[in-house]
C-alpha cells in the first residue's frame, strides 16, 4: 500500500477523525487550523479558521454536517462542515482536552483541563443537528470531577447511557450520562490514559496508556477484556470494524526525547494486534516522530495516523490485510460453510 501524506499542518498533529462514511478526514494540530481532507485521494477540502491556540481535539457528528473542535484558547467551537462557518463558540476557564459527539449527534461533551484553581469538568451540551439553528449556551449537564485525578479523555457509550472517562492516574471511570453520578471506577492502567476509542457499536472501547499497554474494556462493567502489550508508550489505539478483528496502536518515545535517537529506534510505527488473540501481527512505519493519534475508517478500508512530525499518513489496506486469518478462524469458517445446521443447533 502506498500511504498518502497530508502535509497541511505546521505543527504536531493531536487528533484525526473520520466521517461516518469514511470519506472525509478531519485533523487538528498544535497550529490553530483544523483541516478537512478527502480520504480517497488526500485532497484537502478546506480549513476552519478562527481558533487562537493549539488544538487538542476534534469530532464530527454522524451526518457530517457539524464539526466540533476544542483547544488551548479555552474555547470549544462548532462549525458547519460544508461551508466552514463558525456556528457556535463556548468559552471556558481552561483549555478543552477532548470533545465528542454522542452516537446520535444530539449531544456534545467537552472536557476541560485541570489547572491551578480549576477542576476538570465535563460539560454536555444538547446539539441541534440543523446547521442553521441557534445552539444553546447552557450545558445540559456539568460533571465536576473533584475526587478523581485529572480527566484526559471521555466519550459517550452506546445509546448515551454512560459517559466513560480516562484519567491521568490510569484509572477509567463510568458516569451516568443523565444524572452525572459516578457509577464505577477501575484502575486498569499504571500511567496516564492517553486515548479512548469506541468499537463500532460503542459497547466496548479501547484505552491507550503511557504504561505501554492498550486495553479493551466492556462499556457496561468496565471489565478489562483484552490487553495488548507494546514496548513503547502508547498514545492512541483504534479498533478496526468487522469483519477484521484487529486493533491498531500508535505511539513512540515521548516527543521531548525524540531528537536523541534515530527514527528506527524511536519505534514510530503503527502496531497491529489481533483483537482476540492479543498477538502482534505487523507494523507500519513511516512517521519521523511518535504517532499522536490513529483512526480507522468506519468502513474498515483505510486508517490514518497523525504524528508529532506534522504529517497525517492515510493508508488504504491491501488484500493481504483482509485475507489474513488464523488457522482456527479458517477452520471455523469452513465448518460453518460445510455444516450450517451445526451452527443453527448451537443457536
Amino acid at each position: 500500500m502506498r500511504p498518502i501524506l497530508l502535509q497541511g499542518h505546521e505543527r504536531a498533529l493531536t487528533q484525526v477523525v473520520f466521517s461516518k462514511e469514511g470519506d472525509l478526514i478531519f485533523s487538528v494540530s498544535k497550529d490553530h487550523i483544523p483541516s478537512a481532507w478527502y480520504a480517497a485521494n488526500g485532497e484537502r477540502f478546506g480549513a476552519y479558521k478562527g481558533h487562537q491556540g493549539a488544538l487538542w481535539t476534534v469530532d464530527v457528528d454522524p451526518t457530517t454536517t457539524l464539526l466540533a473542535t476544542g483547544g488551548a484558547d479555552n474555547t470549544m467551537r462548532l462549525w458547519e462542515v460544508k461551508t466552514g462557518r463558525e456556528i457556535k463558540k463556548w468559552e471556558f476557564n481552561t483549555s478543552i482536552r477532548r470533545c465528542e459527539f454522542s452516537e446520535d449527534g444530539r449531544q456534545l461533551l467537552g472536557v476541560t483541563e485541570k489547572r491551578t484553581g480549576q477542576l476538570s469538568n465535563i460539560f454536555v451540551y444538547d446539539i441541534n443537528p440543523d446547521p442553521e439553528a441557534e445552539q444553546t449556551s447552557e450545558e445540559s449537564l456539568k460533571i465536576v470531577v473533584e475526587d478523581l485525578p485529572r480527566v484526559t479523555v471521555a466519550g459517550f457509550s452506546a445509546l448515551s447511557h454512560y459517559i466513560v472517562t480516562g484519567h491521568d492516574s490510569g484509572s477509567v471511570a463510568q458516569w451516568d450520562a443523565k444524572t452525572g453520578e459516578l457509577l464505577n471506577e477501575v484502575f486498569s492502567h499504571e500511567e496516564s490514559v492517553m486515548d479512548l476509542q469506541w468499537s463500532a457499536d460503542r459497547t466496548y472501547f479501547i484505552t491507550a496508556s503511557k504504561d505501554k499497554t492498550a486495553k479493551l474494556h466492556d462499556a457496561t462493567t468496565l471489565e478489562v477484556l483484552k490487553t495488548y502489550v507494546a514496548d513503547t508508550p502508547i498514545n492512541s489505539a483504534a479498533i478496526t470494524p468487522e469483519p477484521t478483528n484487529y486493533v491498531i496502536l500508535g505511539g513512540g518515545q515521548a516527543a521531548m526525547d525524540v531528537t536523541t535517537t534515530s527514527a528506527r529506534q524511536g519505534k514510530f510505527e503503527a502496531r497491529f494486534y489481533h483483537k482476540i488473540f492479543e498477538d502482534e501481527i505487523g507494523r507500519v512505519r513511516g512517521h519521523f516522530g511518535p504517532l499522536n493519534y490513529v483512526a480507522v475508517s468506519p468502513d474498515g478500508k483505510c486508517y490514518c495516523s497523525g504524528g508529532e512530525d506534522g504529517y497525517v499518513r492515510v493508508h488504504h489496506f491491501d488484500p493481504p490485510y483482509f485475507d489474513f486469518k488464523y488457522e482456527v478462524e479458517r477452520e471455523k469458517a469452513r465448518e460453518v460453510k460445510d455444516h450450517p445446521e451445526r451452527l443453527e443447533d448451537r443457536l
Binding site: 500500500m1 502506498r2 500511504p3 502535509q7 485521494n41
Partner: peptide, 10 residues
C-alpha cells in the same frame, strides 16, 4: 499539501 509516500508492504 498531498503527496504519495513510498510503497509499504504490509
Amino acid at each position: 499539501t498531498t503527496t504519495l509516500g513510498e510503497n509499504i508492504i504490509f
